[in-house]
Nucleic acid binder design. Structure first.
Length: 579
DNA sequence: GCCGTTTTCGGCCCGACTGTTTTCAGTCG
């Protein structure tokens, strides 16, 4: 069995959690959690590292964990992991998903009442059997029931656009309150992650104003439940089911708090250890002399986040890159990329019209693209096998070419590209013959059928399609549906290598429900110099704006403008399409 | 379990809030 990084990371993560639940040394638990993250984001090939014995050179992988990974990769199993799993009931880790329940309480529940699943926990809470446990009370019991209820109703995370819109409304109303001198979104939303767990907002205000601000926040019309309310921190649930935290700090503390609450957690840990190395202790309120006599150095003044990074000898790190994925090493050397911006885009290439399953006409799509300030638009309606989506027969393709010609005639300084989103059939062949394929300016090849294929089959199918010389780019490369299960597994390492070998491009499909290429893979694609298109998969004029979400992913993937093919000139695009 | 510009031991980021406790542990971010 092939051991991919994701699988190895998952097992390490599970070990960390199981150790948590057994009440082992928390630093030992953390070592496994850290190792899981390290493996998942590893640039090199894991099996190669294992073979060469260089695994323990990776920071965070020592002898203990290194040996266990080696065992897993070479034999397909890890005795330690299986032993741990046997030692605890399988339902225990699931209980940690309940808000307010951590490993210690879950352990008590199991040890004292033998509770080993959420269902049993719910029943016990309803029968008021939790109240007398050590460290539990009536309130805890009630909160557990609320937590289970919320888990049942909103098990998943929220899409970036959904969370972003909810946050915007809260921020706007907070900004209008008297005494609020600054108000910013922080957390994963500021880091522009594709899905958001909860909304974090930071406010700066004088101490006198804090109480009324918190009161106004917790009585906002979007708020349905107040989880906690204090002078500096409040936590609520919004109508759409997402939790929202607001924290208030002073003006002097604001840059520190902004940095701290933006995270990620891993980025913060590194910030603090870098501060310690300079003799300062860093928290969300500022620098202070570190304990232990090293604190002789002058405490730096910081009025902006920029100052904070400078004090640590670092370039300003854009929030999107704060994942402890090499941004410190780059910032230290002034090597951070100048990230692509929405305004750098000159057009996009995976759009549908009412020739297939789109809602708008070609002319309407073009007008919308011009309104966005773009200078080209590629139309890629479905091929004829995609019957469910009104796929174009060869005759309809010819009809569309005629329409494109007639609309193009009326345009100055704007170019319509003739493309097609061609199905990759189940055997990996394409849905049009070579003659038709050759008539397009470019071809996006995508899978729309047989999602139940196993990884090896699906990967083979994609790679065979990529070999076809008429294919320009791979459409929704992983078929990754956000907030639900992946419809089919793909070995992306092999797919990216094939794209690089055959000179094909790859798209970040920016349809908000289906951000196919995640930012870790974007970084891998960049490293392989694969051209990347940000395509909105727009089915109407409004959908063109979804490229914004693709830009977020591109930024998190460290892409500069030149790495994104939609920023190229028409001449560069032509050259790429013709090769 | 990992790590080392005080390196093989003794640390490991830090603070707010809650609920259960009478000073603190657990959870969360």
């Amino acid at each position: 069995m092939k051991m991919d990084k994701k699988h190895v990371a998952h097992i390490l993560e599970e070990i960390g959690t199981l150790l948590d639940l057994r009440g082992e040394n928390s630093f030992k638990c953390r070592a496994y959690h850290n190792a899981a993250r390290t493996i998942e984001s590893l640039g090199e090939d894991l099996e190669q590292l294992v073979r060469s014995g260089e695994l323990t050179n990776v920071k965070g992988i020592g002898k203990g964990i290194g040996d266990k990974i080696t065992e897993l990769v070479t034999t397909g199993r890890m005795e330690y992991h299986e032993e741990l799993k046997r030692s605890l009931p399988p339902g225990l880790p699931d209980m940690l998903r309940i808000q307010g329940l951590g490993p210690k309480k879950v352990k008590v529940l199991f040890d004292q009442l033998g509770i080993e699943s959420i269902a049993q926990l719910k029943q016990a809470a309803e029968e008021h059997r939790l109240q007398n446990l050590d460290g539990f009370g009536a309130r805890t019991e009630e909160n557990i029931l609320v937590g289970i209820d919320s888990l049942e109703r909103h098990a998943d995370r929220f899409l970036y656009p959904v969370a972003s819109e909810a946050a915007r409304r809260i921020v706007e109303s907070l900004k209008r309150l008297p005494g609020v001198t600054a108000c910013e979104i922080t957390g994963s939303l500021r880091r522009k992650k594709e899905t958001i767990g909860d909304i974090d907002i930071l406010v700066s205000a004088s101490e006198k104003q804090r109480k009324p601000i918190m009161q106004a926040f917790s009585s906002h019309e979007e708020v349905v439940r107040v989880i906690a309310q204090g002078e500096t921190k409040s936590s609520v649930t919004l109508r759409i089911g997402i939790n929202c935290d607001v924290r208030i700090v002073s003006k002097a503390e604001f840059p520190f708090a902004l940095n701290y609450f933006t995270g990620s957690k891993e980025h913060n840990v590194e910030m603090r250890s870098r501060a310690l190395a300079k003799g300062w202790s860093l928290n969300e309120y500022g620098f202070s002399p570190a304990k232990g006599g090293k604190g002789k150095r002058r405490i730096p003044e910081c009025t902006t986040e920029n100052d904070l990074y400078r004090a640590l000898g670092l370039e300003f790190v854009p929030p999107e890159l704060r994942e402890e994925m090499g941004e410190f090493e780059a910032a230290e050397q002034g090597m951070l990329p100048e990230l692509v911006e929405l305004k750098d885009l000159r057009g996009t290439f995976h759009c549908h019209t009412n020739f297939s399953d789109g809602a708008n006409s070609l002319a309407e799509m073009v007008a919308a693209a011009q309104a966005l300030g773009w200078s080209y638009l590629g139309i890629a309606d479905h091929s004829h096998s995609a019957a469910y989506a009104g796929g174009l027969s060869p005759a309809r393709v010819r009809a569309q070419f005629k329409e494109i010609e007639s609309v193009q005639k009326r345009l100055k300084g704007f170019r319509i590209y003739r493309g097609s989103e061609v199905d990759i059939l189940s055997d990996g062949s394409l849905d049009f013959n070579d003659k038709i394929l050759a008539s397009f300016d470019y071809v996006v090849a995508s899978i729309h059928s047989k999602f139940k294929m196993n990884e090896a089959e699906a990967t083979k199918r994609i790679i065979k399609a990529l070999k076809n010389k008429f294919v320009t780019m791979l459409g929704h490369p992983t078929g990754r549906l956000l907030l639900s299960r992946d419809p089919y597994p793909v070995n992306m390492t092999e797919v990216l290598q094939a794209a690089a070998d055959y000179g094909r491009a790859i798209e970040i499909n920016a349809h908000p429900m289906r951000l196919d290429l995640d930012w870790r893979l974007v970084r891998q694609a960049k490293a392989k110099k694969i051209p990347i298109f940000i395509n909105p998969d727009a089915h109407n004029t409004e959908g063109l704006r979804d490229v914004e979400y693709g830009v977020n992913v591109a930024r998190k993937g460290w892409l500069s403008a030149k790495d994104v093919a939609n920023t190229w000139s028409q001449r560069q695009i032509d050259r790429f399409f013709q090769k």
